Simulated scan of single mutants.
Amino acid sequence: MTYGIDVSSYQAPSASLLDGMGFVIIKATEGVGYANPNRGQWYSLGRDRAITTGAYHFMRGGDAGSQADYFLANLPGDVDWLALDVEDAGDGLSWAGRVGFILAWHDRVAATGKPVLAYMSRSWAVEVWDNASQEERDRLAAIPLWMADYTGAPGEYSGSAPDGWPITIHQFTSTPVDKNIQLSDVSGGDMPLSTDDLRNIATAVWGGGGAASPMYTDRLDGHQEYPETALFSLQARLGARFGELSGKIDGLAEALKQVQGGNGVDTDAVKAAATEGAKAGVQAIIEKATINLEAK
């Protein structure tokens, strides 16, 4: 999973705030008259770190098209993502009016070809969804939802979320800065894990904190990206199977020792040989796994 922060003029540009982050989303504009003076510096810091950059517009009441144009004219740079921040209770719009604003703003900004997200709190997301027609829900569901719900636990929410609007990014805390976790790919696919993520999983599965199997890690060297859910499913399958085989190995060695009366039986050698066979069995599972661990 990838963590990131979002920033506005309240956060002075600081490279240290980007430590360990995979993305930064920068406030660019608000309404049709405000542009964040720090946006360019934040963009440069993100680019220097080679992390994903995004920009967001704080929605005010008024014309969606004019605000979209103002936002696009004042971006901090060639950002990767664009987002609309919907949280102004004084915007003068009904919930149905907010739905229309979001969709109109999205359509104008999406013409750039860049991914466009919608940001709002959990309660606002529910209201927006509940006040949308079925046709509008179909359109909203195609917009990645960036949802704020300060539970402090990534991916865990304080209440119900819109049923049918997948949460792409969860803003789970605002202390000391707004921190987010990316739960799925902004382009609509499963969230890819990094090679380091996969190697850590392999190590945990294989040896209780020891090194990962060479025949497994070799396959990870060319890794680019794989669906997270499939990887954790594979982790569970491998862990369960190897645990089962390890128990059988111990039982086999003990049975041989009992039969032979302890004479002439090298139980350590038996365990070692059986373990190698077990690893070969686990490798066969890898070969038939639901995801492809070969290099893309």
Rank of each mutant, 00 (worst) to 15 (best):
T175G: 09
N38L: 07
V282H: 01
I102R: 09
T217N: 10
A104V: 07
A28C: 05
Q134H: 12
P162M: 00
S187V: 07
I167F: 08
P37Y: 08
L84H: 02
W146E: 03
W206H: 15
A269E: 12
L103P: 01
H57A: 13
Y34D: 06
G222P: 00
E244D: 13
W81Q: 04
L84R: 04
S44L: 13
E254L: 13
R139V: 06
A12T: 14
D63H: 09
A68F: 00
Y10R: 12
Y3I: 05
Y150V: 08
V186P: 03
D48S: 11
S184K: 14
S194D: 11
D138E: 15
G164S: 13
P192G: 08
L238V: 15
T29W: 05
L117Y: 06
L183Q: 06
S158M: 09
Y226C: 10
R47Q: 09
E136N: 06
A236E: 11
A253T: 03
E228F: 08
R241F: 14
D91W: 05
T175A: 15
S121C: 06
K257I: 09
D91A: 13
A280V: 09
Y34W: 15
A284M: 07
E244M: 07
W81T: 00
D268I: 08
L103G: 01
R219W: 04
G222T: 04
D48T: 11
V126S: 11
G152N: 03
Y3W: 12
S8H: 02
K27D: 07
F23R: 02
G31Q: 03
